[in-house]
Computed example of a mutant assay.
Amino acid sequence: MNTSLMTARKKIVHLQLLPLMSGVQKVSLDELAQLDPTRYDRVAVCKCEGEFTERLRKIGVRVHLIPELERAISPQARRASLRRPARLLSR
């Protein structure tokens, strides 16, 4: 049996457009803080820096910024905003 598969960490990616600290972000921060970093690769993706990204880094969560993330749906923006998170998941 391949032991590297048994010990591989699962990647948890949290996608959050804006890095504000509202109720949803507080819950997400608590959930990510409770995950065992030896079992889970904790990653957050946000549009830009803010209080949420600062607090994520303090608890050891890797943060990736993707400025192309946006709420408005357009074919070009959608493709651009999905390509980079897809690359993160495939690593």
Score class of each variant (00 low, 15 high):
residue 1 M to V: 12
residue 4 S to H: 14
residue 4 S to G: 06
residue 5 L to N: 08
residue 5 L to S: 12
residue 6 M to Y: 06
residue 6 M to G: 02
residue 6 M to W: 06
residue 6 M to V: 02
residue 9 R to P: 04
residue 9 R to Y: 00
residue 10 K to Y: 13
residue 10 K to V: 14
residue 11 K to E: 11
residue 14 H to S: 06
residue 14 H to E: 05
residue 15 L to V: 10
residue 16 Q to Y: 08
residue 16 Q to K: 12
residue 17 L to P: 03
residue 17 L to C: 02
residue 18 L to K: 15
residue 18 L to R: 14
residue 18 L to E: 15
residue 18 L to T: 13
residue 18 L to M: 13
residue 18 L to V: 14
residue 19 P to Y: 10
residue 20 L to W: 07
residue 20 L to G: 02
residue 21 M to A: 00
residue 22 S to W: 09
residue 22 S to G: 12
residue 22 S to C: 06
residue 24 V to Y: 11
residue 25 Q to P: 04
residue 26 K to D: 00
residue 27 V to K: 05
residue 28 S to D: 15
residue 29 L to E: 00
residue 29 L to G: 05
residue 30 D to I: 10
residue 32 L to M: 14
residue 32 L to V: 01
residue 33 A to I: 03
residue 33 A to Y: 13
residue 34 Q to A: 13
residue 37 P to W: 05
residue 40 Y to F: 15
residue 40 Y to D: 11
residue 41 D to K: 10
residue 42 R to W: 04
residue 43 V to Y: 07
residue 43 V to L: 07
residue 43 V to A: 04
residue 44 A to S: 14
residue 44 A to I: 06
residue 45 V to E: 12
residue 46 C to L: 02
residue 47 K to P: 04
residue 51 E to I: 05
residue 52 F to Q: 04
residue 52 F to W: 10
residue 52 F to K: 04
residue 53 T to W: 02
residue 53 T to L: 00
residue 54 E to Y: 04
residue 54 E to F: 03
residue 55 R to A: 06
residue 56 L to A: 01
residue 56 L to V: 02
residue 56 L to H: 00
residue 57 R to N: 00
residue 57 R to E: 07
residue 59 I to L: 12
residue 59 I to Y: 05
residue 59 I to H: 06
residue 60 G to A: 04
residue 60 G to D: 02
residue 61 V to K: 03
residue 61 V to Q: 01
residue 62 R to Q: 09
residue 63 V to S: 04
residue 64 H to L: 10
residue 65 L to M: 01
residue 65 L to S: 00
residue 67 P to F: 02
residue 67 P to A: 07
residue 68 E to Q: 12
residue 68 E to V: 08
residue 70 E to V: 06
residue 70 E to G: 15
residue 71 R to I: 04
residue 72 A to T: 07
residue 72 A to N: 13
residue 73 I to W: 12
residue 76 Q to K: 15
residue 76 Q to E: 13
residue 77 A to Q: 15
residue 77 A to I: 11
residue 78 R to C: 08
residue 80 A to D: 12
residue 82 L to F: 08
residue 83 R to V: 11
residue 83 R to S: 13
residue 84 R to W: 01
residue 85 P to A: 13
residue 85 P to V: 11
residue 85 P to N: 10
residue 86 A to V: 04
residue 87 R to E: 14
residue 87 R to T: 03
residue 87 R to H: 05
residue 87 R to F: 06
residue 88 L to V: 12
residue 88 L to S: 02
residue 89 L to V: 11
